[in-house]
Structures are given as C-alpha cells and as structure tokens.
C-alpha cells in the first residue's frame, strides 16, 4: 500500500510541486494521475521512488517510511518499484537488450536469469526484433517501450509510469495502456500519469486529478475531465 499523508513538496527555488496531498493507493489498483502540465504529477512520482524527499508530511510505501530511510533501504525500496521515467533515461551506448539487462545486472541477477527474462519482456512490449538496436535507432514510441521493459524486468510490485504514452500516436498509446492493464491483471499495482484523455475516459479506472499541487478530484471510475 502507498500512502501520502499531508505531503507538501517545496523545491529549493521556492516553487511548490505538491501542497498538502493525502492519498492512499492499495495493492492491485490501477490509477491514472491527471492534471494540466505543471500540476505536480511528476513531483508526486519522484517522491514515491525517493528521488526527492517530501518537505512536509509523510510518504509510506509498504513497510517503508520514506522520510527516515537509510541509504541501503532506498535501494530496497526501489527494487519494489518499476519506474518509467518521463525522460525515459536510456543509456545511449547500450542496445535495447543491454539497456533492459542492465536493470537486472544492477540488482545482481544471474546471467542465466537475465538471458531468460529479458527476451520475455522484450516480447511483451513488442521489441523482440529491435533487441540489437541502439536507442538513437528507435522511434520515440519504441524508446518509451524500452523504458517500460526495463521497468518491468525485475517483476516490480508497483509499476509507476510518468507519461509513458507522451508523443505517441493514439494507436500505439492504446497498445501501451493495454500492456499496463495486462500487467495489472497479473497482480502489479499500476500508477500512470498521463494526458491521454480518450484512454482515461475509455478505461473507467480510478482517476486522481491534481491542479497546482493539490488533489482536486479522486474518482473510483473517473474520466479525464479536461479539454485536451
């Protein structure tokens, strides 16, 4: 379970990313995070994997209380999470396969497990044929799918995706969301920040809307609710 308790995030330059946000996400949920650009979606997500620390309030992820994590526990927290970053963060000098395998190497997986698991995940995101390409040889959508594969490869309990369908055509975007639905069906909790109005409306899942750092709407079967 993820729980935010009256969380505010104030950046060093004085800007507020989040203001007094309280939110509970249970295991197995599928949640869309919506809101206009600059609302604070990425700010919330960065708090979850502890790239940033809350300025006020407390964030809990399962047994982890994020304000009082030691360095070694930060690593353990992050192993529970599969994060798709808004800026993808692929390594340009490594191939698709190596980029995905890298996330397994980093947590000390065996070569055998890596050889078995990476092709499976590449198959899942539909990149089997591009496995030996470098990121610059891929389209934007394909790069985002590599990011997704890397987030999924260690079988995380929580999949947290920050606009994984940004700059994709609606067709591909829908495929990717279907992928997340499938992962969610297999048991993972999915949190997805997005601007994809049609998809959100169509899916009828929980929608949390943020505006200027505050949660303004939290609906179990929500709609996007903004003109795009």
């Amino acid at each position: 379970m993820i729980r935010l308790d009256k969380v505010s995030k104030r950046y060093p330059n004085g800007h507020y990313g989040l203001v007094d946000v309280s939110l509970t996400i249970r295991r197995g949920e599928f949640l869309f995070l919506v809101g206009p650009s600059g609302a604070g979606k990425s700010s919330l997500i960065r708090l979850l994997y502890r790239e940033e620390a809350a300025s006020q309030g407390e964030v809990f992820v399962d047994q982890f209380k994020l304000s009082s994590l030691r360095r070694s526990q930060v690593a353990r927290l992050r192993r529970q999470l599969g994060v798709v970053f808004q800026d993808v963060k692929l390594l340009p000098q490594r191939t698709v396969y190596q980029n995905v395998a890298f996330a397994m190497e980093a947590v000390g997986a065996s070569t055998r497990d890596i050889r078995k698991r990476v092709p499976q995940v590449l198959e899942l995101v539909g990149l089997s044929r591009s496995r030996d390409n470098y990121p610059h040889q891929l389209s934007g959508g394909e790069q985002q799918r590599v990011g997704i594969a890397r987030a999924l490869v260690n079988n995380p309990i929580y999949v947290i995706a920050d606009e994984p369908t940004g700059n994709l055509d609606p067709e591909t975007a829908r495929d990717i969301v279907k992928l997340f639905v499938e992962i969610n069906r297999r048991g993972a909790t999915v949190i997805m920040a997005t601007h994809a109005k049609d998809i959100v409306n169509q899916m009828q899942r929980r929608v949390v809307a943020i505006e200027r750092g505050r949660v303004v709407r939290d609906e179990v079967r929500g709609a996007y609710g903004y003109e795009s």
Binding site: Y49, A75, R78, K89, V107, N154
Partner: peptide, 8 residues
C-alpha cells in the same frame, strides 16, 4: 540508472 533501479 543503477541507483534508480535499486542497485546498492
């Protein structure tokens, strides 16, 4: 990237 995916 290693830090973010949970390397110690």
């Amino acid at each position: 990237v290693m830090k973010l995916v949970g390397a110690t």
